[in-house]
Design a protein around this nucleic acid. Structure first.
Lengths: 346, 346
DNA sequence: AATGGCAGTTAAAACGTTTTAATTAATTTT
DNA sequence: AAAATTAATTAAAACGTTTTAACTGCCATT
């Protein structure tokens, strides 16, 4: 059952009474071809149902029009949303996407993945793996220069690399300042794991805002969670035991904020009357909790799009023998105010 | 700046004092090669930092070891979780993944995507696009037979195709039966859009359970939502206006259940004392709402893995000239019982 | 002592494109 | 009318692999 379809460019050429090169010319449009023969060729293509073999084309072009995307945590909102942006932009620029997932970022074999990607001759790589833990496998610098252009998402700055990220510090500062502006004076932080760069940045933003208002930033006001809701719930219980008069909480992500709200419910603290709560990420559910959750919105799809754009420029640049100046691009997030800080407004 | 790495198999061959064919033999392991020369070749590979060009290999093998994945709604939990399963299984079987996203499933050009996938000579395709709307572009049957093997996820049965799906009907039946077992007698349904196959199946499951207990399944007990939380909230308000004595609700997904819980909160109906609520999907947040949400868990990663396994079998079968019998595989979901039906248990 | 088989190797032919350099035909310039 | 230019086309050489078929030696059969 040869469902395979062996119709090749020379089949088309033969039927159109022309050479393969000419067919290629109308396909790529790189060289002029007489109108009469062009229509003859197009008809032949149509009649035979010819489809070019991109593998062969890539082989001679030394370029596959493909980007490799390495990411992790796709089951969470942030990474998957970013991937959507990456895909959309890649599509618009004519790239296909080769997807690799790190299921356990601290353990998985990065080298093997990079090998496969280069073996498949991707034109560029987007590295969207969260920095987690200290013993995580990193791309060795000497390896880096043997790779195609690469852009890093949400990652600590490294010399010689291109990086895109949300400005986590400013986001946290916006959130905390909002609480201060509402008159809150004892504002606790539910922090993320400090081996994540994002977590450290958000802590720094919280701290900066409070220091600007001369409020308490001592370690009594901080509890560390693990990004998960349950840790947020526990965090608030611990905080309230030690500091019963806390009137504001900034949780470093929405999941932990969820836990905070849950704890408030069972501890009979009214939100926002007794305690105002702000999260970070603006996940889709934030709007529909009770009370709905004030949160910091990252422009995730723009982040993904920006990564592809930067990568595209780098690819073009290298194609012309030059290199693109590496650097850090920060996207400023915005605060979305809801019931958890200003109460019901209906 | 020629960062390109032109080291090819014949470079290796030359350095090892051997022909290209022999190098290929040690690479593929398909034919025996003397131990002495093997080590010589391996050393040459090492020293030159040779990396095989998979494009060239694919060209001659007529197989790219790549699967195309077409999906949509990646920003939601279900599709992204499924993708994780797909990727994991694909990886284990040695496939890479070419990812295509439909951003607007009812509008996007399916033909162009299929063209690109076949042009790139993928070995198989996983079609994980939700069936939505009637005027959505569908893969034309005559096109289907010119494509590589293809597996459909979460889609209505079609003759001659392989399909994997959660058994939505049974899941809905489990959920509703649970409410009945708890003694609830007026059990409403917040249904999904009826142009989705999943939505119709879940309605059928609800109906079957209630009919088994001789309870009211009239249209008064049904409100149709759009999967979003706000529609769930509105739905409950409408239901309670007409039927104030409703004591149980099955929402066709967790998002709408979220809206139902929110409405209950603001309408001062206690959950589960006054109204017991069950959702569908078991999204990560379900566990941490207040009350936590009883829900139906789909085995999403297994769904993804199963799709790849089925596809792999089909590819192997076609490689041997035979075809795999198409069919439908249903994965039975399970009920996760939480506070929204049985109350707080601490 | 011839035959056969086997293990290892290789030269050359694919795979399906694009590109280069050459060739032809048509058109313009002198 | 010859020469020079331009426009289309083509044959052949890439691109980097695998595979086929042929060719060695060498050893074991008879």
């Amino acid at each position: 059952m040869p469902t395979v379809q062996p119709v090749t460019i020379v089949d088309v050429a033969r039927r159109a009474g022309v050479s393969a090169g000419t067919v290629s010319n109308v396909l790529t449009g790189k060289r002029p071809v007489a109108e009469a023969t062009r229509v003859r060729i197009l008809r032949a293509i149509e009649e035979l149902g010819y489809q070019p073999n991109l593998l062969a084309r890539s082989l001679v072009n030394r370029s596959s029009n493909t980007l490799g995307v390495v990411t992790s945590g796709l089951e969470y909102y942030g990474p998957s949303r970013t991937l959507v942006g990456i895909e959309a932009q890649a599509n618009e620029l004519g790239y296909s996407l080769l997807l690799d997932l790190l299921h356990r970022p601290d353990v998985d074999d990065v080298a093997a993945i990079l090998d496969d990607l280069t073996a498949r001759r991707v034109d560029g790589i987007i590295w969207a793996v969260h920095e987690v833990g200290g013993n995580r496998h990193w791309i060795a610098p000497e390896r880096l220069r043997a790779l195609p252009p690469i852009v890093f998402l949400t990652m600590k700055s490294r010399p010689g690399t291109s990086i895109l990220s949300t400005d986590n510090r400013t986001g946290a500062l916006l959130a905390t300042q909002h609480l201060i502006d509402l008159g809150r004076r004892k504002i606790a932080l539910v922090a993320g794991p400090q081996d994540w760069w994002e977590a450290r940045e958000r802590l720094a933003g919280w701290q900066a805002a409070l220091e600007g208002a001369a409020l308490d930033v001592s370690s009594r006001m901080i509890v560390y969670g693990d990004w998960m809701p349950s840790s947020g719930e526990q965090a608030l219980r611990r905080l309230l035991e030690a500091q019963p008069d806390i009137d504001g909480v900034f949780a470093s992500n929405d999941q932990m904020a969820l836990g905070v709200l849950r704890a408030c419910h069972f501890l009979h603290r009214r939100v926002p009357d007794d305690i105002a709560v702000v999260g970070f990420d603006n996940m889709p559910e934030a709007e529909f909790l009770w009370p709905s959750l004030t949160s910091v919105r990252q422009r995730l799809t723009e982040l993904g799009r920006g990564a592809v754009q930067t990568l595209h420029s780098a690819i073009e640049a290298r194609g012309q023998g030059s290199a693109l100046a590496p650097g850090v691009q920060l996207l400023t997030p915005e605060l979305v105010v809801r019931e958890s800080t200003i109460g019901r407004n209906d």
